[in-house]
Design a protein around this nucleic acid. Structure first.
Lengths: 224, 224
DNA sequence: ACAAAAGTGTTGCTACTACACCCATGA
DNA sequence: TCATGGGTGTAGTAGCAACACTTTTGT
């Protein structure tokens, strides 16, 4: 009965770069699926005290990304998903900003790179399914949680924020209504700074106020 | 590295009985936690082709409940949650109607019973935390999915339906608005039958139309 | 003056909340 | 006729969708 099973943690890390939703992948150096791209992840270790911590550790080891939004997603465990034998994968969702990290591949990998979610290469194992699932969950998540703010810098313009919504949802949103509604939620702090990006009008910067979010009588819904 | 870890599936099965949300528990016959109440579940087996199937198998073996709504919830894997050694538990949510099953304990258990979610006994392992998590998820779930219909008979009165919402959400809802809004969603089929339950006006019966639900241009939201 | 992105206001409509009473039935 | 749960209507309000033009800046 108590079959021993191998357990991995694999992370779907998203970022938005110039209005494009991208996923962090590593290129495998060893079999199985040698030289295929895959999600960063690996086996849970005796030393890991929690699964969350195991996912964070693997992500850091394989890509050098650390200290980011990380949340458990779903566990994939169909027999046959790993040719080496029964392995279940606890999948994680990560949200981050590319500019904050310099990618560095581990010795197990021959590469690390960001791939647009709509132009993914062939992926190892059932990782394509995992990415699809993560994307679907992210679409819900930005509508009822402040997840979008994990994808942009601490100071951002309303346009930055809108680009996150548009790239995650894969559709345009009306910018007048977007601004009105987001400002109305009361979670944005208007800063006394503006951008200065080119030969056009500078944009006001905002920050997300966790405090204000927590203090609202009802959770706002970020649906556009 | 590739530590072998034991994997269990444990199910939080909910039902609503006379306006009370209840959880299905089994009483353990063996150590650890001998004679404590626990969630039905057990080790994933070599023969299980999927985790979903493993959860269904364990639920049936331990309580005789089968063919019910069953969905993966979350995976609990903190080191130390099982005194026997590293064990992770893939938790499942089940929704069902008590009257459809006659409970029968397995030989591993000295009892099976429904417990009101607000009056739970001490539970084995971290099962109390798992139940709490499942309840929280169920509260969301009935608001954006037709999950509530898995908790009542195929033919039901609007009152039955309302009792499901009230017991899951732990609060009263305005019955005028509840009826109006639910009828407006277009997912209910009005039947030509009524109940006949006592010395008062009989109630009209309805059924949930999966078809109508699927065909709606936008998913209705069941928020009251 | 032009190119580029920032920023804004109104109207119509839908859908929600809040609220209290009459109806049908069997005993 | 009473007790019990079944069933309904309205008015006010809030918030949404749809829609196009003006502003600011650097070159």
């Amino acid at each position: 009965m108590a079959t021993e099973i191998k357990v991995t943690v694999d992370t779907v890390a998203f970022s938005v770069e110039q209005g494009v939703l991208e996923v962090l992948l590593v290129k495998r150096k060893f079999d199985p699926f040698k030289s295929n791209w895959a999600l960063p992840g690996g086996f849970v270790d005796e030393a890991d005290t929690t699964l969350d911590q195991a996912a964070a550790r693997e992500l850091k080891e394989e890509t050098s990304v650390s200290d980011v939004f990380l949340e458990q997603l779903y566990t994939f465990g169909d027999r046959g998903r790993d040719p080496r034998g029964r392995t279940i994968s606890v999948a994680y969702l990560a949200l981050l900003r590319q500019q904050e990290f310099e990618l560095r591949a581990s010795s197990d990998a021959s590469g690390v790179a960001w791939w647009p979610v709509n132009e993914l290469p062939q992926l190892a194992f059932d990782h394509h399914e995992i990415v699809g699932y993560a994307h679907k969950r992210l679409k819900y998540k930005i509508e009822y949680s402040p997840a979008a703010f994990s994808l942009i810098a601490a100071k951002f313009t309303l346009r930055d924020l809108q680009l996150v919504y548009e790239s995650v949802l894969s559709r345009a949103v009306d910018n007048r209504n977007f601004r009105k509604k987001f400002l109305n939620t009361g979670v944005l702090e208007e800063l006394d700074e503006t951008t200065q990006e080119g030969s056009f009008r500078p944009a006001r910067l905002y920050s997300f106020s966790e405090d204000r979010f927590e203090k609202l009588p009802d959770r706002p819904v970020f649906v556009f």
